[in-house]
């Protein structure tokens, strides 16, 4: 694998997506329906976090 910050951002995105699928499966396995809400919330957090980080890397600052 390569060094550098872009590869690591892609890796964090992949880990987040796999965590969502894992949360839904654990929700079915332990018979508690509250895990689906946590999965929905984490999907939104993963999306927003990746977008904000990519924007910071592109511009060097968040607001201009």
């Amino acid at each position: 694998m390569g060094p550098g910050v872009f590869n690591r951002v892609a890796a964090v995105n992949v880990i987040g997506t796999k965590t969502i699928a894992l949360l839904v499966l654990i929700g079915y396995y332990t018979e508690r329906p509250y895990f689906f809400d946590i999965a929905l919330l984490y999907a939104m957090l993963n999306f927003i976090g990746t977008l904000v980080f990519a924007r910071y890397l592109e511009r060097g600052e968040l607001w201009s």
């Binding site: 872009f6 951002v9 892609a10 995105n13 993963n46 999306f47 990746t50 977008l51 990519a54 924007r55 890397l57 592109e58």
Partner: peptide, 8 residues
């Protein structure tokens, strides 16, 4: 999100 990383 993939498109945003690639654009950056």
């Amino acid at each position: 999100a993939t498109h945003a990383i690639m654009k950056a």
